[in-house]
Every structure is written in C-alpha cells, then in structure tokens.
C-alpha cells in the first residue's frame, strides 16, 4: 500500500463569515493524480488556497493531514517549505522583483528550512538553466520582473518552472489551463508530466475536461456548493464534458453522493 500524501477529513471553512466549504473529504496517495472539477463558485479554488494556507479563509472544522501531520496551524511558508506547491490560477505580477532573484530566494528558503546549504547566484543560474528546458522557456524571462508583462501562457509556464525548481511533494494546479491556447496547454502539461514521479501527489483543479487529456487523472471528483458530490475514474470527466454540469443537479437531488 502506498503512502498517503494528503488526507482531508470533513473540512469546513468560511470566508467573511460565509460558509464556503461544507465538509470536504479527499485522500491522495503517492503517485496519484486527482482532478477536481466543478462550476465557478463550487469551492474548488477555495480548497486549493486553504491547503496552501491563505489567511483570508477561516477553517471552522475538520482536518488537513499532510504526510501524517496536521498542517492547519502552519504558516503558508512552512507548508511551502515542507513540499506543498500551489500553481496559481492568476499568478501575481510584481514589478521590481526580478524573476531570477525571486526564484533564488524561494529556492534558498526551502534549502534553509531543510537544513541544507543556500546556493549562490552563479550556481543558481546553472540550476535554473536546466529547469528552463522543462517548460521551453527563454532565459530572457529570468531577467524580467516577476510575471510583469507576461502573457497568460507565459505566466503559467513560469509557475511550472517554479514547480520544477522547488520539487514539491504535493502539487496543486489551480486552473492551470484557463486562458491557454492549445500550444501553451501542451507545453504546460508536458512540463507537469515530465516532473511526475511515483512518490508524489497531484491535485489538478479545472473547469474543463480538455486538460485531463494531457494530464491524465487517476480519480476525478466533482465539487458543488462546497462539497465533493461525486467521484469516479477519468470517464467521469468525459461524461461531464458530454452532458454538462447540469446532469449533476439530478444526481445530487437523487442523493447520489460520494
């Protein structure tokens, strides 16, 4: 039996006092790719931010166990350093922070946390050069300000570059496909697939089935109103694609849940 990377039990959460997660259960084992699909507002992006520790959300009940330990009391940076990586749906642009410096600072934060030696500027440049291949990125992007003036596809590739660099144990991709043309989608998915190893866990959040043609899931979950209402194999995604989210409305009223 393989190791459990992430275990979420009966998780409830509020934002500004409004319940937004209403009892989520999810278990990701090493080597597994889980996909969460759902309409806008179903709570799927919220779930990803809560796992990463966004301070705007208040966890009101339940547990998040990562590699056997509860992380609810951990700061976002502790979670990141211990191997949780969230690729953002909308990566922020920060003018004045060079992409290269930012990645070096992030890499060294993790090295420090793990009690390893921090890397200097020159060695880091060699390291990052190797990683650029993963997402076919031009080195000129490193000299630019973090995400500033990047196109949608470039921002997402930059997220996957960070994933390649930080080598996370649990990767959460929050709508990594939104706004991407087919070429960019292919590059981003190829990047993720190259990085995939059997000792790690993956959570892919998406609105569209198309992404799952490229990043193949082991389990597909569907979220609605802050709950996972149904789970299945990858054929569930295809069914959603052909019948639309409406067919779930019948399912939930019929009481067909997890």
């Amino acid at each position: 039996m393989s190791e459990t990377i992430l275990s979420i039990r009966n998780l409830t959460a509020n934002v500004d006092g409004t319940p937004i997660l209403k009892g989520v259960n999810l278990e990701i084992k090493a080597g597994e790719v889980h996909a969460i699909m759902g309409r806008n507002g179903s709570g799927k992006s919220t779930l990803s931010k809560i796992i990463a520790g966004h301070p705007d959300y208040e966890v009101t009940g339940g547990e998040i166990i990562y590699q056997g330990e509860s992380i609810l009391d951990q700061e976002p940076n502790e979670r990141a350093n211990s191997g949780i990586f969230l690729a953002f749906q909308y990566p922020l642009a920060i003018p004045g922070v060079s992409n290269l410096d930012f990645m070096r600072v992030a890499y060294n934060a993790k090295q420090k946390y793990l009690g390893l030696e921090e890397i200097d500027t020159f060695d880091f440049e060699d390291l990052i050069e190797e990683k650029l291949e993963v997402v076919k990125m031009n080195p000129s992007f490193l000299a630019r300000s973090l995400n500033e003036g990047f196109s949608g596809g470039e921002k997402k590739r930059n997220e996957i570059l960070q994933m390649a660099l930080l080598d996370p144990t649990l990767t959460i991709l929050d709508e990594i496909d939104s706004g991407l043309d087919i070429d960019a989608l292919r590059i981003v998915s190829d990047g993720v697939n190259q990085l995939k190893t059997p000792d790690k866990g993956y959570l892919v959040i998406t609105h569209y089935q198309r992404l799952l043609d490229y990043i193949e899931p082991d389990v597909v979950h569907v979220m609605k109103d802050g709950e996972i209402i149904t789970s299945g194999g990858k054929e569930l995604a295809l069914e959603l694609e052909s019948r639309g989210y409406d067919f779930l409305d019948d399912k939930s009223t019929a009481g067909v849940g997890v």
């Binding site: 700061e75 922020l92 934060a109």
Partner: peptide, 24 residues
Amino acid sequence: ADEIFYLRSRGLSENDAIQLLIDA
C-alpha cells in the same frame, strides 16, 4: 495581501515577503 500570500506560498516568511515588496 495577495502579493504577500503569493510570495509566502513560495516559502518566504512574512517579513521576507514584505521586505521584498518594499525593495521592489
């Protein structure tokens, strides 16, 4: 707050994230 969270989600402590944004 979202900028600070983005940086923290990459492993920077709150103080380091703030420092980086001010430097920027």
